[in-house]
């Protein structure tokens, strides 16, 4: 039984002491101030905000019913979108794997390579796909090629960073065993590193393909090919029923992509 002697009774217990409580109130107050500052500083034209429900209703009315007449063209553009994502993902592999190899602490040849690899990864990741697309449209002109390169350049950072982490997390003991057999560095990698990072590799590539399908749907907005080109054209010509069809088609494609990658993930890993 619990001993209910007087010493155990009526003792004060508080989760935070006075100082901790003060700090928590100060942090809360500061957060509120930052939020207030942000809301008051940006220029929102409030009448438009109050008018938004009307606009939503009217836009919905103009979109309904979706116009299926351009469906053939839309499906072709969607396929192009998927091809952009697939080709870009495939090309990414060839660049991202060497980069991840030199950007992983335990496989990099020297410090210069390590920093070069890390620089490539950070550069790739800090520039958004749309900005890459703008750059490549400027270089190669509008079209699918710019889109593929944009998706690829953004993916290199993603795949390279995650693969680099996978390489850093391998069990070192098989590496040691392969070295002890007199294997060269390339053979050590083929036998002790590659098998260990295979599951991570498939998971990362499938995930990135999934993300790339979604990203390539907006590439057309800057002229880099895919479904976005038609979407932009329909919005510009106020063809709202066609816009509705395109949006439904994109949602269907993304859901399909999700389903396929889900199955692949379960099968492969």
């Amino acid at each position: 039984m619990v001993d209910n002697s007087s010493a155990a009774q009526g003792r004060v217990w508080q989760r935070y002491d006075g100082r901790q409580r003060l700090i928590r109130y100060v942090v809360l107050l500061l957060s509120m101030m930052v939020l207030y500052w942000a809301v008051s500083d940006i220029d929102i034209f409030w009448p438009w905000v109050w008018d938004a429900p009307n606009q939503i209703g009217s836009l919905g009315a103009r979109m309904w019913p979706p116009d299926p007449s351009g469906l053939g063209e839309i499906v072709a553009a969607l396929l192009e979108t998927v091809h952009i994502a697939t080709l870009a993902t495939a090309l990414t592999i060839f660049v991202a794997l060497p980069v991840s190899y030199i950007a992983a602490q335990n496989t990099t040849p020297n410090r210069a390579c390590l920093w070069l690899g890390r620089f490539i990864l950070v550069a790739s990741r800090s520039v958004n796909t749309i900005i890459w697309a703008l750059l490549f449209v400027a270089i190669f002109g509008p079209g699918v090629l710019a889109g593929i390169l944009a998706i690829m350049f953004r993916s290199i950072g993603f795949v390279g960073k995650l693969m680099g982490e996978a390489i850093e997390e391998i069990d070192r003991r098989p590496v040691e065993a392969m070295q002890a057999t007199g294997a060269s560095k390339a053979k050590v990698i083929a036998y002790a590193v590659v098998p260990q990072v295979m599951p991570a590799f498939f998971a990362i590539i499938i995930l990135r393909w999934d993300i790339n399908i979604r990203e390539s749907t907006v590439l057309g907005l800057v002229g880099a090919g895919g479904i976005g080109v038609i979407l932009q054209g329909a919005i510009d010509t106020f063809a709202w029923p066609t816009v509705a069809t395109i949006l439904i088609a994109i949602i269907t494609l993304v859901l399909l992509g999700e389903a396929i990658t889900g199955v692949l993930r379960r099968k492969v890993i």
Partner: peptide, 14 residues
């Protein structure tokens, strides 16, 4: 020089 290890050091997935 053959070597045998405490943790076997096999490549598990092969």
């Amino acid at each position: 020089i053959g070597m045998v290890f405490q943790g076997f050091n096999l490549i598990d997935r092969l």
